[in-house]
Amino acid sequence: MEKELRREIILDNYQNPYNKKTIEDSSYIKINTNNESCIDNLDIYFKVEGGFIKDAGFNGEACAISTSATSIMLRGLIGKSISEVKELLKNYINMINEKEYDQDLLKELNVYDEIYLQPNRKNCALLPARAVEKMLKEIENAG
C-alpha cells in the first residue's frame, strides 16, 4: 500500500476512532487489554448474538497504532460470524508476524502490513487481536 494512503487511514482512525465510547450494557462482553510492555489500556466491548458479532466498541488510552488498529478491526468484525472472525484474526496475526496471509480478507487492516519494520510497534498493532482472542475464549468457555 502507498505510504501516504496508509498513514492517512491510520491517522483518521486514530483521530476519529470508530465507536469509541464506554458501553454499559450487560449484553456486551467487556474485554480489558492492558499490556505491561507498552502502556495502552483499552476496554473493548462485543455484542455477540446467534454466533455473529452484532456490535463492538472500545474506550481507554492507547497510542496511535493501537487505537487505529482497534478502530479498524472492530469495524471490520461487525456482522461477521465467529468462524469468519477466527479466520480474519489468524490472517491478521500472520501478517503482523511476517507469515503468509490472505490480503483480500484483511481489507483496511492491510495498512499494518509493514509494521514489522518497527518491531517495537508489533505489540501495538496486536493489541485488538489479543482482545478478540480473549473474547473468543470467553464465548467458548461460556458455550
Binding site: C38, I39, D40, A62, C63, A64, T67, N120, R121, C124
Partner: peptide
C-alpha cells in the same frame, strides 16, 4: 499526543 507516540518519535 499519547506519551508512547512521543517516545517512539524521539526514538
Amino acid at each position: 499526543i499519547f506519551p508512547q507516540d512521543t517516545a517512539i518519535y524521539l526514538d
